[in-house]
Write a protein that binds this DNA or RNA. Structure first.
Lengths: 216, 216
DNA sequence: GAAGTTCTGTGATGCAAATCACAATGTAAA
DNA sequence: TTTACATTGTGATTTGCATCACAGAACTTC
Protein backbone atom coordinates (compact mmCIF):
# COMPACT_ATOMS: atom_id res chain seq x y z
CA UNK A 1 0.00 0.00 0.00
CA UNK A 2 2.75 2.46 0.99
CA UNK A 3 5.30 3.82 -1.43
CA UNK A 4 7.31 0.63 -1.51
CA UNK A 5 10.01 0.72 -4.10
CA UNK A 6 9.60 -2.48 -6.07
CA UNK A 7 13.02 -2.28 -7.68
CA UNK A 8 14.83 -2.46 -4.38
CA UNK A 9 14.39 -6.13 -3.41
CA UNK A 10 15.78 -7.14 -6.76
CA UNK A 11 18.75 -4.78 -6.47
CA UNK A 12 19.46 -6.10 -2.99
CA UNK A 13 19.27 -9.69 -4.15
CA UNK A 14 21.79 -9.01 -6.86
CA UNK A 15 24.25 -6.75 -5.09
CA UNK A 16 23.78 -7.35 -1.36
CA UNK A 17 23.04 -11.06 -1.17
CA UNK A 18 23.96 -11.14 2.50
CA UNK A 19 21.05 -8.87 3.41
CA UNK A 20 18.60 -11.68 2.85
CA UNK A 21 16.17 -11.36 5.77
CA UNK A 22 12.92 -10.63 3.96
CA UNK A 23 11.56 -8.25 6.59
CA UNK A 24 14.79 -6.25 6.34
CA UNK A 25 14.45 -6.15 2.57
CA UNK A 26 10.91 -4.92 3.00
CA UNK A 27 12.02 -2.15 5.34
CA UNK A 28 14.75 -1.07 2.97
CA UNK A 29 12.22 -1.00 0.13
CA UNK A 30 9.99 1.20 2.26
CA UNK A 31 12.47 3.81 3.43
CA UNK A 32 15.29 3.57 0.88
CA UNK A 33 15.46 5.89 -2.09
CA UNK A 34 17.16 5.10 -5.35
CA UNK A 35 19.40 7.83 -6.70
CA UNK A 36 21.49 8.12 -9.83
CA UNK A 37 24.66 10.19 -10.03
CA UNK A 38 26.89 11.13 -12.91
CA UNK A 39 30.65 10.80 -12.94
CA UNK A 40 32.30 13.72 -11.19
CA UNK A 41 29.41 14.65 -8.94
CA UNK A 42 30.28 15.30 -5.32
CA UNK A 43 28.31 13.11 -2.94
CA UNK A 44 29.70 14.36 0.31
CA UNK A 45 32.13 17.12 1.07
CA UNK A 46 34.40 17.91 3.99
CA UNK A 47 32.61 19.28 6.97
CA UNK A 48 29.15 18.32 5.83
CA UNK A 49 26.78 16.32 7.96
CA UNK A 50 25.38 13.14 6.53
CA UNK A 51 21.71 12.37 6.55
CA UNK A 52 21.76 9.04 4.78
CA UNK A 53 23.97 6.07 4.14
CA UNK A 54 24.45 4.87 0.56
CA UNK A 55 24.23 1.25 -0.57
CA UNK A 56 26.05 1.29 -3.87
CA UNK A 57 24.41 -0.90 -6.51
CA UNK A 58 26.16 0.36 -9.64
CA UNK A 59 29.26 2.33 -10.54
CA UNK A 60 32.03 3.41 -8.26
CA UNK A 61 32.76 6.07 -5.68
CA UNK A 62 36.06 7.69 -4.88
CA UNK A 63 36.90 8.58 -1.29
CA UNK A 64 39.44 11.33 -0.83
CA UNK A 65 41.11 13.04 2.11
CA UNK A 66 42.07 16.69 1.82
CA UNK A 67 44.76 18.36 3.86
CA UNK A 68 43.39 21.13 6.07
CA UNK A 69 46.50 23.22 5.68
CA UNK A 70 47.43 23.58 2.02
CA UNK A 71 44.55 21.78 0.38
CA UNK A 72 46.54 18.88 -1.00
CA UNK A 73 44.56 15.72 -1.65
CA UNK A 74 45.04 12.00 -1.30
CA UNK A 75 42.94 9.12 -2.55
CA UNK A 76 41.91 6.83 0.29
CA UNK A 77 40.07 4.14 -1.65
CA UNK A 78 37.38 3.31 -4.18
CA UNK A 79 33.99 1.83 -3.33
CA UNK A 80 32.38 -0.69 -5.68
CA UNK A 81 28.87 -2.05 -6.13
CA UNK A 82 27.87 -4.10 -3.12
CA UNK A 83 29.74 -1.82 -0.75
CA UNK A 84 28.86 1.11 1.41
CA UNK A 85 30.67 4.04 2.95
CA UNK A 86 31.53 3.14 6.53
CA UNK A 87 32.75 6.64 7.02
CA UNK A 88 29.12 7.63 6.68
CA UNK A 89 28.21 5.15 9.39
CA UNK A 90 30.52 6.61 11.92
CA UNK A 91 29.82 10.13 10.83
CA UNK A 92 26.09 9.81 11.15
CA UNK A 93 25.95 7.58 14.18
CA UNK A 94 28.21 9.92 16.07
CA UNK A 95 26.64 12.87 14.32
CA UNK A 96 30.02 14.27 13.47
CA UNK A 97 31.23 16.21 10.51
CA UNK A 98 32.80 14.44 7.61
CA UNK A 99 36.58 14.18 7.35
CA UNK A 100 36.51 13.23 3.73
CA UNK A 101 35.08 13.91 0.34
CA UNK A 102 33.35 11.34 -1.82
CA UNK A 103 32.84 11.84 -5.52
CA UNK A 104 31.39 9.66 -8.23
CA UNK A 105 34.17 7.89 -10.09
CA UNK A 106 31.90 5.96 -12.43
CA UNK A 107 28.19 6.69 -13.03
CA UNK A 108 26.55 5.40 -9.89
CA UNK A 109 23.22 4.10 -8.65
CA UNK A 110 22.66 3.82 -4.93
CA UNK A 111 19.99 3.18 -2.35
CA UNK A 112 20.03 5.92 0.26
CA UNK A 113 19.04 4.81 3.75
CA UNK A 114 18.10 7.52 6.25
CA UNK A 115 20.56 7.30 9.10
CA UNK A 116 18.04 6.60 11.82
CA UNK A 117 17.44 3.12 10.42
CA UNK A 118 21.11 2.23 10.26
CA UNK A 119 21.23 2.20 14.02
CA UNK A 120 17.76 0.77 14.56
CA UNK A 121 18.37 -2.21 12.29
CA UNK A 122 21.64 -3.07 13.99
CA UNK A 123 19.71 -4.45 16.93
CA UNK A 124 16.91 -5.88 14.85
CA UNK A 125 18.53 -7.71 11.94
CA UNK A 126 21.65 -9.73 12.42
CA UNK A 127 22.40 -9.68 8.69
CA UNK A 128 22.37 -5.88 8.81
CA UNK A 129 24.61 -5.84 11.84
CA UNK A 130 27.02 -8.21 10.12
CA UNK A 131 26.94 -6.09 7.01
CA UNK A 132 27.81 -2.96 8.96
CA UNK A 133 30.62 -4.70 10.83
CA UNK A 134 31.90 -6.22 7.63
CA UNK A 135 32.01 -2.79 6.02
CA UNK A 136 33.96 -1.33 8.87
CA UNK A 137 36.36 -4.19 8.64
CA UNK A 138 37.04 -3.85 4.96
CA UNK A 139 37.35 -0.09 5.12
CA UNK A 140 39.80 -0.44 7.97
CA UNK A 141 41.84 -2.81 5.85
CA UNK A 142 41.76 -0.42 2.92
CA UNK A 143 43.06 2.32 5.17
CA UNK A 144 45.92 0.12 6.31
CA UNK A 145 46.75 -0.63 2.68
CA UNK A 146 46.73 3.06 1.89
CA UNK A 147 49.08 3.69 4.79
CA UNK A 148 51.38 0.92 3.59
CA UNK A 149 51.44 2.45 0.19
CA UNK A 150 52.33 5.99 1.21
CA UNK A 151 54.66 4.96 4.00
CA UNK A 152 56.57 2.11 2.43
CA UNK A 153 56.32 2.37 -1.36
CA UNK A 154 57.93 4.68 -3.85
CA UNK A 155 56.04 6.66 -6.43
CA UNK A 156 56.61 4.28 -9.34
CA UNK A 157 55.07 1.36 -7.44
CA UNK A 158 52.24 3.52 -6.15
CA UNK A 159 51.46 4.75 -9.66
CA UNK A 160 51.31 1.22 -11.05
CA UNK A 161 49.03 0.11 -8.23
CA UNK A 162 46.85 3.15 -8.87
CA UNK A 163 46.53 2.46 -12.58
CA UNK A 164 45.70 -1.14 -11.83
CA UNK A 165 43.01 -0.20 -9.32
CA UNK A 166 41.50 2.40 -11.60
CA UNK A 167 41.40 -0.07 -14.43
CA UNK A 168 39.48 -2.49 -12.22
CA UNK A 169 37.06 0.21 -11.08
CA UNK A 170 36.17 1.16 -14.64
CA UNK A 171 36.52 -2.36 -15.95
CA UNK A 172 38.55 -1.04 -18.81
CA UNK A 173 42.14 -1.00 -20.02
CA UNK A 174 41.68 2.56 -21.18
CA UNK A 175 41.73 5.18 -18.45
CA UNK A 176 40.54 8.72 -18.97
CA UNK A 177 42.54 11.03 -16.76
CA UNK A 178 45.07 13.83 -16.99
CA UNK A 179 48.46 13.53 -15.38
CA UNK A 180 47.44 16.32 -13.03
CA UNK A 181 44.42 14.36 -11.79
CA UNK A 182 46.55 11.31 -11.12
CA UNK A 183 49.11 13.45 -9.33
CA UNK A 184 46.35 14.87 -7.13
CA UNK A 185 45.09 11.42 -6.17
CA UNK A 186 48.60 10.29 -5.28
CA UNK A 187 49.57 13.57 -3.65
CA UNK A 188 52.44 13.98 -6.07
CA UNK A 189 53.59 16.61 -8.55
CA UNK A 190 52.36 16.54 -12.12
CA UNK A 191 55.91 16.49 -13.48
CA UNK A 192 56.83 13.44 -11.43
CA UNK A 193 53.81 11.56 -12.72
CA UNK A 194 54.47 12.61 -16.32
CA UNK A 195 58.04 11.32 -16.11
CA UNK A 196 57.06 8.04 -14.48
CA UNK A 197 54.32 7.48 -17.05
CA UNK A 198 56.79 8.16 -19.83
CA UNK A 199 59.08 5.53 -18.32
CA UNK A 200 56.18 3.08 -18.24
CA UNK A 201 55.49 3.88 -21.89
CA UNK A 202 59.12 3.29 -22.79
CA UNK A 203 58.99 -0.11 -21.14
CA UNK A 204 55.75 -0.88 -23.02
CA UNK A 205 53.54 -1.09 -19.95
CA UNK A 206 51.20 1.70 -21.12
CA UNK A 207 50.51 3.85 -24.17
CA UNK A 208 49.89 7.53 -23.57
CA UNK A 209 47.50 9.88 -25.27
CA UNK A 210 46.12 13.22 -24.26
CA UNK A 211 43.65 12.62 -21.39
CA UNK A 212 43.97 8.91 -21.92
CA UNK A 213 46.13 6.00 -20.82
CA UNK A 214 46.05 2.55 -22.41
CA UNK A 215 47.19 -0.20 -20.10
CA UNK A 216 49.05 -2.91 -21.97
CA UNK B 1 27.74 -18.25 42.90
CA UNK B 2 29.86 -18.49 39.77
CA UNK B 3 33.33 -17.09 39.48
CA UNK B 4 32.17 -13.51 39.15
CA UNK B 5 35.03 -11.08 39.24
CA UNK B 6 34.07 -8.50 41.84
CA UNK B 7 36.64 -5.96 40.72
CA UNK B 8 35.17 -5.66 37.26
CA UNK B 9 31.99 -3.65 37.93
CA UNK B 10 34.07 -1.02 39.68
CA UNK B 11 36.64 -0.88 36.88
CA UNK B 12 33.85 -0.51 34.35
CA UNK B 13 32.21 2.24 36.33
CA UNK B 14 35.43 4.19 36.41
CA UNK B 15 36.76 3.64 32.91
CA UNK B 16 33.79 2.66 30.78
CA UNK B 17 30.98 4.76 32.19
CA UNK B 18 28.94 4.33 29.02
CA UNK B 19 28.63 0.59 29.58
CA UNK B 20 26.16 1.17 32.37
CA UNK B 21 23.48 -1.48 31.79
CA UNK B 22 23.75 -3.57 34.94
CA UNK B 23 23.02 -6.87 33.24
CA UNK B 24 25.83 -6.17 30.78
CA UNK B 25 28.17 -5.34 33.63
CA UNK B 26 27.22 -8.63 35.26
CA UNK B 27 27.96 -10.55 32.09
CA UNK B 28 31.31 -8.86 31.71
CA UNK B 29 32.13 -9.70 35.31
CA UNK B 30 31.24 -13.32 34.59
CA UNK B 31 33.21 -13.91 31.42
CA UNK B 32 35.85 -11.18 31.48
CA UNK B 33 39.32 -11.85 32.82
CA UNK B 34 41.62 -9.23 34.26
CA UNK B 35 45.17 -9.31 32.98
CA UNK B 36 48.23 -7.25 33.76
CA UNK B 37 51.01 -6.62 31.27
CA UNK B 38 54.39 -4.99 31.61
CA UNK B 39 55.77 -2.34 29.29
CA UNK B 40 57.22 -3.88 26.17
CA UNK B 41 55.17 -7.07 26.15
CA UNK B 42 53.62 -8.04 22.85
CA UNK B 43 49.85 -8.47 23.05
CA UNK B 44 49.18 -9.43 19.50
CA UNK B 45 51.47 -10.03 16.59
CA UNK B 46 51.03 -10.01 12.83
CA UNK B 47 49.28 -13.01 11.50
CA UNK B 48 47.95 -14.23 14.82
CA UNK B 49 44.30 -14.95 15.38
CA UNK B 50 42.58 -13.17 18.22
CA UNK B 51 40.54 -14.99 20.79
CA UNK B 52 39.57 -12.06 22.97
CA UNK B 53 39.00 -8.35 22.86
CA UNK B 54 40.70 -6.13 25.44
CA UNK B 55 39.02 -3.39 27.43
CA UNK B 56 41.91 -1.27 28.58
CA UNK B 57 41.50 0.01 32.13
CA UNK B 58 45.04 1.17 32.86
CA UNK B 59 48.18 2.05 30.94
CA UNK B 60 48.57 2.37 27.21
CA UNK B 61 48.93 0.19 24.16
CA UNK B 62 50.84 0.92 20.99
CA UNK B 63 49.46 -0.22 17.64
CA UNK B 64 52.01 -0.69 14.89
CA UNK B 65 51.94 -1.69 11.25
CA UNK B 66 54.86 -3.57 9.77
CA UNK B 67 55.76 -3.63 6.11
CA UNK B 68 55.52 -7.11 4.61
CA UNK B 69 58.41 -6.49 2.31
CA UNK B 70 61.39 -5.09 4.19
CA UNK B 71 60.11 -5.20 7.74
CA UNK B 72 59.97 -1.46 8.28
CA UNK B 73 57.51 -0.28 10.93
CA UNK B 74 55.09 2.56 11.43
CA UNK B 75 53.15 3.63 14.49
CA UNK B 76 49.42 3.75 13.80
CA UNK B 77 48.16 5.05 17.14
CA UNK B 78 48.11 4.66 20.90
CA UNK B 79 45.21 3.29 22.91
CA UNK B 80 44.42 4.73 26.33
CA UNK B 81 42.38 3.59 29.32
CA UNK B 82 38.70 3.50 28.42
CA UNK B 83 39.43 2.38 24.89
CA UNK B 84 39.58 -0.90 23.06
CA UNK B 85 41.22 -2.27 19.98
CA UNK B 86 38.71 -2.13 17.16
CA UNK B 87 41.16 -3.96 15.00
CA UNK B 88 40.50 -6.90 17.28
CA UNK B 89 36.79 -6.51 16.66
CA UNK B 90 37.08 -6.79 12.96
CA UNK B 91 39.75 -9.43 13.17
CA UNK B 92 37.78 -11.66 15.46
CA UNK B 93 34.33 -11.08 14.01
CA UNK B 94 35.58 -11.85 10.55
CA UNK B 95 37.94 -14.45 11.98
CA UNK B 96 40.79 -13.02 9.99
CA UNK B 97 44.46 -12.76 10.75
CA UNK B 98 45.83 -9.64 12.29
CA UNK B 99 47.40 -6.94 10.12
CA UNK B 100 49.09 -5.25 12.99
CA UNK B 101 51.11 -5.66 16.13
CA UNK B 102 50.10 -4.30 19.51
CA UNK B 103 52.59 -3.89 22.32
CA UNK B 104 52.32 -2.47 25.81
CA UNK B 105 53.50 1.12 25.84
CA UNK B 106 52.82 1.73 29.52
CA UNK B 107 52.13 -1.01 32.13
CA UNK B 108 48.60 -2.07 31.34
CA UNK B 109 45.60 -3.66 32.97
CA UNK B 110 42.80 -4.92 30.80
CA UNK B 111 39.63 -6.93 30.86
CA UNK B 112 39.74 -9.63 28.20
CA UNK B 113 36.37 -10.52 26.69
CA UNK B 114 36.12 -13.76 24.72
CA UNK B 115 35.17 -12.87 21.20
CA UNK B 116 31.93 -14.79 21.09
CA UNK B 117 30.35 -12.31 23.47
CA UNK B 118 31.42 -9.26 21.49
CA UNK B 119 29.03 -10.26 18.76
CA UNK B 120 26.31 -11.63 21.01
CA UNK B 121 26.10 -8.46 23.09
CA UNK B 122 25.82 -6.24 20.02
CA UNK B 123 22.23 -7.36 19.59
CA UNK B 124 21.49 -7.54 23.29
CA UNK B 125 22.85 -4.35 24.83
CA UNK B 126 22.55 -1.06 23.07
CA UNK B 127 25.28 0.47 25.22
CA UNK B 128 27.64 -2.27 24.06
CA UNK B 129 26.64 -1.75 20.44
CA UNK B 130 27.24 1.97 20.81
CA UNK B 131 30.58 1.34 22.44
CA UNK B 132 31.69 -0.89 19.59
CA UNK B 133 30.54 1.59 16.97
CA UNK B 134 32.14 4.43 18.84
CA UNK B 135 35.43 2.53 18.93
CA UNK B 136 35.35 1.93 15.22
CA UNK B 137 34.65 5.56 14.68
CA UNK B 138 37.54 6.84 16.75
CA UNK B 139 39.97 4.31 15.34
CA UNK B 140 38.94 5.31 11.85
CA UNK B 141 39.65 8.90 12.71
CA UNK B 142 43.03 8.02 14.16
CA UNK B 143 43.88 6.26 10.93
CA UNK B 144 42.93 9.31 8.92
CA UNK B 145 45.12 11.44 11.17
CA UNK B 146 48.00 9.03 10.68
CA UNK B 147 47.52 9.25 6.93
CA UNK B 148 47.46 13.03 7.11
CA UNK B 149 50.66 12.99 9.02
CA UNK B 150 52.66 10.76 6.71
CA UNK B 151 51.16 12.15 3.52
CA UNK B 152 51.12 15.86 4.23
CA UNK B 153 53.62 16.62 7.00
CA UNK B 154 57.37 16.73 7.04
CA UNK B 155 59.50 14.88 9.53
CA UNK B 156 60.05 17.81 11.90
CA UNK B 157 56.32 18.31 12.36
CA UNK B 158 55.71 14.59 12.66
CA UNK B 159 58.39 14.30 15.31
CA UNK B 160 56.93 17.11 17.39
CA UNK B 161 53.48 15.60 17.16
CA UNK B 162 54.93 12.23 18.17
CA UNK B 163 56.70 13.64 21.21
CA UNK B 164 53.56 15.42 22.21
CA UNK B 165 51.43 12.28 21.90
CA UNK B 166 53.93 10.16 23.76
CA UNK B 167 54.11 12.70 26.54
CA UNK B 168 50.32 12.51 26.87
CA UNK B 169 50.34 8.72 26.87
CA UNK B 170 52.84 8.54 29.70
CA UNK B 171 51.53 11.64 31.39
CA UNK B 172 55.06 12.89 31.75
CA UNK B 173 57.34 15.55 30.29
CA UNK B 174 60.20 13.07 30.41
CA UNK B 175 60.19 10.44 27.71
CA UNK B 176 62.31 7.32 27.84
CA UNK B 177 63.25 6.31 24.34
CA UNK B 178 66.25 5.99 22.10
CA UNK B 179 66.47 7.89 18.84
CA UNK B 180 66.36 4.55 17.06
CA UNK B 181 63.03 3.64 18.67
CA UNK B 182 61.53 6.96 17.66
CA UNK B 183 62.87 6.54 14.15
CA UNK B 184 61.22 3.12 13.94
CA UNK B 185 57.85 4.45 15.05
CA UNK B 186 58.03 7.24 12.48
CA UNK B 187 59.51 5.03 9.77
CA UNK B 188 62.54 7.32 9.52
CA UNK B 189 66.29 6.93 9.83
CA UNK B 190 67.99 7.26 13.19
CA UNK B 191 70.32 9.97 11.90
CA UNK B 192 67.44 12.10 10.66
CA UNK B 193 65.75 11.89 14.06
CA UNK B 194 68.99 12.68 15.89
CA UNK B 195 69.51 15.78 13.80
CA UNK B 196 65.93 16.99 14.19
CA UNK B 197 66.06 16.41 17.95
CA UNK B 198 69.29 18.37 18.13
CA UNK B 199 67.57 21.22 16.30
CA UNK B 200 64.72 21.08 18.81
CA UNK B 201 67.27 21.18 21.62
CA UNK B 202 68.97 24.20 20.08
CA UNK B 203 65.66 26.01 19.94
CA UNK B 204 65.01 25.06 23.57
CA UNK B 205 62.00 22.87 22.88
CA UNK B 206 63.57 19.77 24.46
CA UNK B 207 66.60 18.74 26.47
CA UNK B 208 68.37 15.55 25.41
CA UNK B 209 69.99 12.87 27.51
CA UNK B 210 70.92 9.32 26.74
CA UNK B 211 67.68 7.29 26.48
CA UNK B 212 65.74 10.30 27.68
CA UNK B 213 64.06 13.39 26.31
CA UNK B 214 62.78 16.26 28.45
CA UNK B 215 60.02 18.21 26.84
CA UNK B 216 60.22 21.89 27.72
C1' DG C 1 89.31 0.17 35.68
C1' DA C 2 89.59 -2.10 31.14
C1' DA C 3 86.97 -3.88 27.50
C1' DG C 4 82.90 -4.29 25.16
C1' DT C 5 78.40 -2.55 23.90
C1' DT C 6 74.87 0.72 23.03
C1' DC C 7 73.80 5.23 22.11
C1' DT C 8 74.50 9.83 20.01
C1' DG C 9 76.63 13.43 16.90
C1' DT C 10 78.03 14.81 12.54
C1' DG C 11 80.13 14.99 7.99
C1' DA C 12 79.83 13.34 3.07
C1' DT C 13 77.32 11.57 -0.57
C1' DG C 14 73.24 9.82 -3.07
C1' DC C 15 68.55 9.80 -4.59
C1' DA C 16 63.56 10.49 -5.13
C1' DA C 17 60.64 13.87 -5.81
C1' DA C 18 59.28 18.96 -5.48
C1' DT C 19 59.73 23.13 -7.64
C1' DC C 20 60.78 26.37 -11.25
C1' DA C 21 60.81 27.45 -15.97
C1' DC C 22 59.53 26.94 -20.61
C1' DA C 23 58.62 24.79 -25.05
C1' DA C 24 55.71 21.96 -27.72
C1' DT C 25 51.50 19.91 -28.78
C1' DG C 26 46.62 19.07 -28.94
C1' DT C 27 41.78 20.81 -28.49
C1' DA C 28 38.04 24.11 -28.11
C1' DA C 29 36.33 28.78 -28.97
C1' DA C 30 36.05 33.05 -31.53
C1' DT D 1 41.68 29.83 -39.22
C1' DT D 2 43.46 32.07 -35.77
C1' DT D 3 43.50 32.59 -30.94
C1' DA D 4 43.24 30.89 -26.42
C1' DC D 5 43.66 27.38 -23.23
C1' DA D 6 44.70 22.88 -21.32
C1' DT D 7 47.83 19.19 -21.44
C1' DT D 8 52.22 17.10 -21.86
C1' DG D 9 57.47 16.87 -22.15
C1' DT D 10 61.83 17.96 -20.36
C1' DG D 11 65.75 20.39 -18.45
C1' DA D 12 67.86 22.67 -14.24
C1' DT D 13 67.85 23.40 -9.45
C1' DT D 14 66.60 22.55 -4.70
C1' DT D 15 65.14 20.00 -0.79
C1' DG D 16 64.25 16.41 2.54
C1' DC D 17 65.82 12.27 3.93
C1' DA D 18 68.39 7.84 3.41
C1' DT D 19 72.61 5.84 3.55
C1' DC D 20 77.41 5.32 4.53
C1' DA D 21 81.11 6.08 7.55
C1' DC D 22 83.09 7.09 11.68
C1' DA D 23 84.20 9.17 16.26
C1' DG D 24 83.17 10.09 20.80
C1' DA D 25 80.19 9.53 24.93
C1' DA D 26 77.88 6.83 28.26
C1' DC D 27 76.66 2.92 30.22
C1' DT D 28 77.55 -2.52 31.36
C1' DT D 29 80.24 -6.37 32.35
C1' DC D 30 84.15 -8.58 33.66
Amino acid sequence: MDNINLEIPDLLRRHFPFLRESSLQKEIALVGAIHHFKEGEILMNFGSYIKSVPLLVKGAIKVVREDDVDGKELLLYFLHAGQTCSMSFSCCMMNKKSDIRTTVEDDATLIAIPIKYVDEWMGKYSSWKNFVMQSYDSRMREMVRTIDSIAFRKMDERLLEYLYQKSKVHQSKILFATHQEIADDLNASREAISRLLKKLENSNRVRLERNKIHIL
